[in-house]
């Protein structure tokens, strides 16, 4: 399993990288962590003519709390999330996900940005970022723009990024008071994609009801998806009420559309989503209290 031939470029600045994207267009692929791209190239499922390696863009390798959000630079590795006190103490949903993505060796190299830019519904971060209502920052020849996560994913492996744009940063709003989040994933074994997974980020009102909630689902739709029905079933309700949880779980199961594969039948995956949604909500509520 040997990759096809390509030309390799290692820009030293974001602007240089964008120039290369402009020059090579659809022939080029960005190489960040490479943990999805390189295996795809080894199977020759991906045969890019040009690789633009952004690992040298060390100014994109950051993870910092600024202006009410967590800023994750494009070259921030998954392992950085695990090692970050800020993430571990304030971004529980993200911390949960960081532990169950692929395996520890892959996480040492894989990037958060790559996980999102790949727009694979089987990846874990898309659902997490949907639940967080994150913002993607992209830079292209005409400058920088921000893309709300709700409009970022457009299709299977397709995003709002143009061929000439580079994802430079992801911004996660800092959870406010009485907020909590959780990621609950069912996988066949370590390193596998999810049979199904649920990302929940919610805020409780003073009376204990759910004031706000966003829920993302992993690997149960042709593209990354939000479970807006499940969110609606929660908002304004008492999440300690088993009937409320069940309603949210049922809603999530109804609105996803998993396909049958070796990970299970569609019926199984739907029911897994129902169960995991309840568990993720319960965990998020515990953290919000």
């Amino acid at each position: 399993m040997i990759p096809g031939k390509f030309d390799y470029y290692a820009p030293t600045s974001v602007d240089e990288a964008i120039d290369m994207l402009v020059t090579h267009g659809s022939e080029a692929k960005i190489l960040a962590g490479g943990q999805s791209l390189i295996p795809a190239m080894r199977y020759r499922l991906a045969v890019p003519e040009v690789l633009i390696d952004i690992n040298g863009l060390t100014d994109l390798n950051y993870l910092k709390q600024v202006n009410g959000h967590l800023a994750i630079g494009a070259m921030c590795r998954e392992v950085d999330l695990e090692e970050s006190d800020v993430v571990q103490s304030q971004y529980h949903l993200l911390a949960d996900a960081a532990e169950v993505i692929a395996d520890p060796l892959v996480r040492n190299q894989a990037t958060v940005g790559g996980n999102i830019a790949h727009a694979d519904p089987a990846n874990d971060h898309p659902a997490v970022m949907l639940a967080y209502d994150a913002t993607v920052v992209a830079k292209g020849p005409s400058g920088e723009r921000t893309i709300p996560i709700d409009s970022f994913f457009t299709d299977l492996f397709e995003s709002a990024l143009s061929e000439q744009e580079l994802l430079t940063e992801i911004r996660i709003p800092t959870p406010g008071a009485n907020s909590g989040g959780a990621y609950v994933k069912l996988e066949r074994k370590v390193g596998d994609y999810a049979i199904g997974a649920v990302a929940v980020q919610l805020t409780l009102a003073a009376d204990g009801t759910v004031a706000a909630a966003r829920i993302g689902l992993t690997n149960v739709y042709y593209m990354p998806m939000r479970a807006t029905g499940a969110e609606a079933a929660l908002i304004g309700q008492d999440p300690s009420d088993e009937a409320v949880l069940e309603a949210a779980g049922i809603a999530a199961a109804a609105e996803c559309d998993p396909s049958a594969d070796l990970r299970g039948s569609a019926a199984y995956k739907r029911d897994v989503i129902r169960t995991l949604a309840k568990r993720a909500i319960t965990k998020a509520v515990e953290r919000a209290r």
Binding site: D103, R188, K189, V190, G191, D192, L262
Partner: peptide, 11 residues
Amino acid sequence: LADYLVPTAVE
């Protein structure tokens, strides 16, 4: 080996 599930130390 992504589809044929050889157990790890966790399983």
